[in-house]
């Protein structure tokens, strides 16, 4: 009789829950999790990228029973995790250049394939991920990444998107959202912050390559993120996972608000969370409690100019319009709530 009860006090929103069966709990709730990115790394307080990387790589480690190699682009993640001679990584890990993480991943995958064939196996038990920030992914490493997609190389590429070049001092990338202030898009003039209508939406570009699997996730929804990594590791070929990771330093937010901001990005529709296979959206994570974009923008100093003095309701309205378009495009609201 008791097994009929699906309600676990907090549902599956928390990391774990003593009432859940162990196999229903997240990787992160386990005492035995790998801690692929170990303590002592030099990421800022409340770093979303450090969190996102541990979430994703730990899940990939579980999915591959620890048979995993990571190639890393230059960026915060690389700098804060591996100041010579220390490393925070608890898996085989290589850093080459800023722009070539996807190509390094491709090379490792090719080498593993050869080794497997020579050993008389159909495929390698060891799998490959390549990872980088939004700069190394959407700008500098974009050519290599597109090539990896196009050749359908057996690599999961994970982009930890904190929406600017944070480690070099918060410069704009092609993932920086409109109106955000960065060191290179100052909050001055008639159109303060980053331009509207520019930048790249890499998950949609990845979908255009019609690769086996594309997904987005945030550090605010661990169960969803882990399920997507698991799914990605269950298929072969080129796969792309884009994780929104708030940056307290670059966004001008409280270090304690990292997860809250990621949650608001999803609940406003600013960051659509979905999965796609071979170019088609197969599943979206619906908005649970829809909120206006102001809720998301206000706690971030990079958007402070939208609220100072008379404020810029016109620009906020444009951001809201973008969020609304995402909601329409990805059907982020359940039908009965969209009216």
């Amino acid at each position: 009789m008791t097994q009929a009860i699906k309600f676990y006090q907090t549902g599956t929103f928390t990391v774990g829950n003593r009432l859940l069966q162990p196999e229903q709990r997240s990787v992160q709730s386990s005492i035995e999790r790998n801690n692929s990115l170990n303590s002592g790394h030099r990421a800022c307080q409340g770093c979303g990228e450090a969190l996102g990387a541990r979430y994703a790589v730990d899940a990939a480690m579980r999915a591959t029973q620890g048979q995993l190699i990571a190639a890393n682009a230059t960026g915060c993640l690389e700098v804060f995790s591996t100041p010579y001679p220390e490393t925070s990584w608890q898996l085989p890990w290589i850093h080459s250049l800023f722009g070539n993480a996807a190509a390094v991943g491709t090379g490792i995958a090719a080498a593993l394939k050869v080794k497997a064939r020579k050993a008389g196996l159909a495929e390698s038990a060891v799998r490959v991920i390549a990872q980088g920030g939004d700069g190394g992914t959407t700008d500098i490493g974009f050519g290599c990444l597109s090539g990896m997609f196009e050749r359908n190389d057996d690599v999961l590429y994970i982009c930890y998107d904190n929406e600017a070049y944070m480690n070099t001092g918060v410069q704009r990338s092609s993932a920086t959202p409109p109106a955000a202030r960065t060191a290179t898009t100052m909050a001055v003039g008639p159109n303060p912050g980053a331009e509207f209508g520019q930048g790249k939406n890499l998950p949609r570009i990845a979908m255009a390559h019609e690769i086996p699997y594309v997904a987005t996730a945030t550090v605010a929804d661990l169960h969803d993120l882990e399920a997507k990594v698991e799914k990605a590791m269950s298929v072969h070929g080129a796969r792309y996972l884009h994780i929104l990771v708030p940056c307290p330093l670059g966004w001008g937010a409280a270090s304690s608000d990292t997860i809250k901001l990621a949650r608001l990005a999803r609940e406003t529709g600013i960051f659509p969370v979905f999965e796609a296979e071979h170019g088609e959206v197969t599943r979206v994570t619906e908005i649970r409690h829809r909120v206006a974009v102001e809720e998301y923008l206000k706690p971030q100093k990079r958007f402070a100019h939208l609220f100072a003095g008379p404020g810029r309701p016109d620009l906020i309205a444009q951001i809201q319009a973008d969020a609304d378009r995402n909601i329409r495009r990805f059907h982020l609201l359940a039908p009965e709530r969209s009216q």
Binding site: Q9, G16, R18, N38, A43, L51, I259
Partner: peptide, 14 residues
């Protein structure tokens, strides 16, 4: 109530 949130969300495994 042992939801594991603190254990999960710490960026520093602390």
């Amino acid at each position: 109530f042992e939801c594991d949130n603190c254990y999960g969300v710490c960026p520093d495994n602390a």
